[in-house]
Amino acid sequence: MLEALYRTARALPLGRPAADPAGSGILIRPAGAEAHVSLRVRDPGPSAAGLPLDRPINTVSGDARRWIARLGPDEWLIGSDEAEADALPAALAADLGERPHAIVDISHRNVGIDVSGARAAVALNAGCPLDLGEAAFPAGTATRTLLGKAEIVLIRRPGPVPLYRVECWRSFSTYVHGFLTEAARSAG
């Protein structure tokens, strides 16, 4: 019975709160159970497990089901469907072979929150000091930054309305979600 529990019922820290907790038109949706991998590799080559490793720093590639954000010269954050949790690290390791690297499962460390809506950037700017304007932070941008007093990774995905993914550590997720909710209330 407990075997079945692993894989199907991760106790996510934020549960399933309302999508628009502030009633502001800014949607703040905690992501479901996902797989996250921290990939560190020097001299990475063009790709691994089908994910590009040659894109510029501070960009994200892929789609919502499988994405890779380059956070530094030798550092990537990878997100994917939970179903890939075992296969993806193995595929990465196989492709990287003898290149010195680290593939660390951080699926339970990272918590994702999707923030979307025309005024999403305004809410994020309540705590994120970066310029989130079109020119400075177009869709496809990803960076490590701050939201209030929490460290986050901020990713902007393409879409008809502005769509951001905020990634933070598990124990900061209550604060980050609360901060975003309060920010959305004050975004008018």
Binding site: G148, K149, R170, T174, Y175, G178, F179, E182
Partner: peptide, 15 residues
């Protein structure tokens, strides 16, 4: 600003 009560500082709790 909003840094009051629960938002004064992140309160980290375990699972």
């Amino acid at each position: 600003g909003p840094a009051r009560h629960a938002l004064f500082d992140p309160i980290r709790t375990t699972p």
